[in-house]
């Protein structure tokens, strides 16, 4: 096996690990959005996917695309998501708070038999 092929396989392996990890985080965030009890707590679950999940998938794709203009565009996209997602989350939270939506501030602990958690 030639060294260049070995490097290619190595990059592919790194890319696959990063992307699968990112996808798992995205899925966990979505499930969190379903299960958590109120708006403010769901916001945290949505944040999980925006920060780590999205960045991991984008970085994984950058390993896969080789060195081209596509890599540069992916890096720009990652930077953009990294900079705007906290602003969007803060804007949503701030609008809800200003509108008088009260956060749940007591311990939330549904019984053991209630596996679905959040009331729809």
């Amino acid at each position: 096996m030639s060294p260049s092929l070995l490097i290619e396989y190595g990059l592919d392996a790194v890319s696959a690990v990063l992307m699968i990890t990112g996808a798992v985080f995205v899925l966990a965030g979505a499930i969190g959005m379903m299960r958590l009890p109120d708006f403010y707590t769901r916001m945290h679950a949505a944040g999980v996917t925006d920060t780590l999940g999205a960045e991991l998938i984008v970085i994984g794709l950058m390993f896969q695309s080789g060195w081209s203009l596509v890599t540069v565009k992916l890096a720009l996209l990652g930077l953009f998501v990294f900079l705007t997602s906290p602003t969007a989350t803060h804007a949503t939270a701030n609008a809800a708070y200003k509108a008088g939506l009260k956060p749940l501030l007591t311990r939330f602990r549904p019984g053991g038999d209630d596996q679905n958690g959040s009331p729809l």
Binding site: G29, R35, L52
Partner: peptide, 23 residues
């Protein structure tokens, strides 16, 4: 971010939800 992410995912996916949100 990485450390906090794992903590949040563990909380949100625990079979029995047990959280106490605070402001």
């Amino acid at each position: 971010i990485f450390k906090a992410n794992i903590a949040v995912v563990r909380l949100a996916l625990a079979p029995n939800l047990n959280i106490k949100p605070v402001l």
